[in-house]
């Protein structure tokens, strides 16, 4: 990689860490989804395992895992079926916040024009910025996953005396679905960045990405669609294809005039 592109990525990383508001908004969603939410589920499941609603949900799980004890069943459902859906919000939110700050934020602060006067092609600038957003999104996702696992395992250990292994679906999420939807979120923000005058305005586009996640969550809770490894794989491949297409189109539409208008 060119030193200039590396410098841009490094600068965008620093921009996140040094901006308290941005940093806080990047942390809030992961903390809620990976620490608060699992803890509530674990504690609820431990103290009220006989809840009829919970029983109804557990009956929707595949028969292969129905043989486990009731508490184990609850925890399995939590870690491998409920949390993955919520977890997908992390890369979307992180990528959106980063992309909005990196593209529209620079335009708002009048630093984008200075960047465009550098001896880099627009494609190189685009690539460096997308890469910076993508890397931050992936980093936050991985740290969130590690934090979630740590919190969940610790709580389970103290409550039940045993731990729980994450299913293979997490591997698909971390390596395929999460990177793909990060890229989709970034490209949607970049498309908005030409029209948007403020960071908030540009983030509106990413809200539409949350809708499929909410639908997935509803599907999970009602039993309409269970997130098996195969469903996740299919979803991941589809998202990766969409991301690739969107990226190509966004890069083609990236002109000086559109960016600064």
């Amino acid at each position: 990689m060119k030193r200039s592109m590396y410098a841009m990525i490094h600068k965008d990383f620093r921009g996140v860490v040094s901006n308290r508001r941005l940093f806080a908004s990047l942390l809030i969603v992961p903390i809620v989804l990976t620490v608060l939410l699992p803890s509530i589920f674990v504690i609820t499941g431990h103290f009220t395992p006989d809840d009829p609603d919970l029983q109804q949900m557990l009956s929707l799980l595949p028969e292969s895992i129905q043989e486990s004890s009731l508490e184990q069943l609850i925890h399995q459902m939590l870690l491998n079926y409920i949390l993955p859906v919520f977890f997908l919000m992390i890369p979307i939110m992180t990528a959106s916040i980063m992309a909005a700050s990196s593209f529209v934020g620079e335009k708002e602060k009048r630093t984008l024009e200075t960047l465009l006067y550098a001896p880099l092609t627009l494609k190189e600038i685009f690539r460096a910025k997308v890469l910076a957003c993508f890397l931050v999104s992936m980093l936050v996702s991985l740290i969130s996953f590690a934090a979630m696992l740590l919190v969940l395992e610790t709580e389970l250990f103290f409550l039940t005396g045993s731990g729980l292994f994450p299913g293979i679906s997490w591997l698909v999420i971390l390596l395929l679905v999460s990177p793909a939807i990060s890229l989709i979120a970034i490209t949607l923000i970049v498309r908005q960045s030409a029209k948007a005058k403020t960071v908030e305005e540009s983030q509106q586009g990413a809200v539409f990405l949350i809708i499929p996640i909410v639908l997935l969550a509803i599907g999970q809770f009602t039993g309409v669609l269970m997130l098996s490894v195969w469903v996740l794989l299919g979803l991941g491949v589809l998202c990766a294809l969409v991301a690739g297409l969107l990226l190509k189109r966004a890069m083609g539409n990236f002109t000086y005039e559109k960016l600064l208008s």
């Binding site: 600068k11 006067y117 880099l120």
Partner: peptide, 22 residues
């Protein structure tokens, strides 16, 4: 309209743009 980064020092700003220029 060509501004630099408020969160970086004067020196850091120049070092960043120097890197962009190779």
């Amino acid at each position: 309209h060509a501004q630099m980064y408020d969160h970086l020092t004067g020196m850091e700003n120049l070092e960043f743009y120097a890197a962009l220029f190779g």
